[in-house]
C-alpha cells in the first residue's frame, strides 16, 4: 500500500510538473481522454482491488487472524477513568491485577470491552486492532500474541484529563506461565 501510494504520488506530481514546464507535453491527448484515463481507468481498478482485499483481510482479522476459531479465551476489559481492569469469565477463581493483562501466547484472545463511565478505546499497538469501550455496549475484538513477552497498551479515545496516563500492559506467557500468573494473583 505504501509503495503503491508513493508510485501514484510520483505519477500525479510528475504529470503536474511536466505539464507545467515541458512545452507541448500531453497536448496530443485530448482533454476527455486525460480525464477518462487518469480519473477513471487509473483509480477504479486499484480501488476495487484494494477494497475487496481489505474486506477479506478484515473478515480474517475479525476471526482473530487464525483459521482456528474454536480455542478462544474470553477476557473482559473494563475501562474507567483512568484505568483498565481485566477479568477471565471462563476461568473461575482467577483474578487479575489492575492495569495488567495476562494472556497465553499463541492463543486467540477475545477481548470484550466495556466501560463504566465514558468512551475508552482498548489498543495494544503491536498486537493490532483496537476496539472502543462504549458504555452500555460490549464490543468484541480478537487479538493474538505469537511470542511470550510484554506489550504496551493505551487508551486511544480521548476520555478526559487522565487520558494520557491511561496505559496498561499485556504480558504474554507460555501455557504454564499463564496458569501460574492468573492463579498466583489469587495467592498474593
Amino acid at each position: 500500500m505504501l509503495w503503491g501510494s508513493c508510485a501514484l504520488f510520483a505519477l500525479v506530481l510528475g504529470l503536474f510538473l511536466a505539464a507545467w514546464f515541458v512545452p507541448d507535453f500531453g497536448r496530443r491527448l485530448p482533454p476527455d481522454r486525460w480525464i477518462v484515463w487518469g480519473g477513471l481507468a487509473l483509480p477504479l481498478p486499484v480501488l476495487i482491488a484494494l477494497t475487496l482485499y481489505a474486506f477479506n483481510q478484515g473478515e480474517f482479522l475479525l476471526k482473530g487472524a487464525t483459521k482456528d476459531t474454536e480455542d478462544v479465551l474470553e477476557v473482559r476489559a473494563t475501562g474507567r477513568m483512568w484505568e483498565w481492569d481485566f477479568s477471565y469469565p471462563t476461568l473461575p477463581g482467577s483474578v487479575a491485577e489492575p492495569g495488567v493483562l495476562h494472556i497465553p501466547a499463541g492463543r486467540t484472545i477475545e477481548i470484550v470491552a466495556e466501560s463504566e463511565d465514558v468512551i475508552h478505546s482498548f489498543w495494544v499497538p503491536r498486537l493490532g486492532g483496537k476496539i472502543d469501550a462504549v458504555p452500555g455496549h460490549a464490543n468484541r475484538l480478537r487479538i493474538r500474541a505469537d511470542k511470550p513477552g510484554r506489550y504496551g497498551g493505551i487508551c486511544s479515545e480521548y476520555c478526559g484529563t487522565g487520558h494520557a496516563g491511561m496505559r496498561f500492559e499485556v504480558r504474554a506467557h507460555d501455557e504454564d506461565g499463564f496458569v501460574r500468573a492468573v492463579s498466583a494473583e489469587t495467592s498474593e
Binding site: 476495487i48 477494497t51 474486506f55 478484515g58 473478515e59 475479525l62 464490543n139 468484541r140
Partner: peptide, 14 residues
C-alpha cells in the same frame, strides 16, 4: 453495484 457487494459474504452481525 459496488457499495453493497459485501452482503454476499461478510459477517452480518457482531
Amino acid at each position: 453495484a459496488f457499495c453493497f457487494i459485501g452482503v454476499f459474504w461478510l459477517t452480518l452481525c457482531a
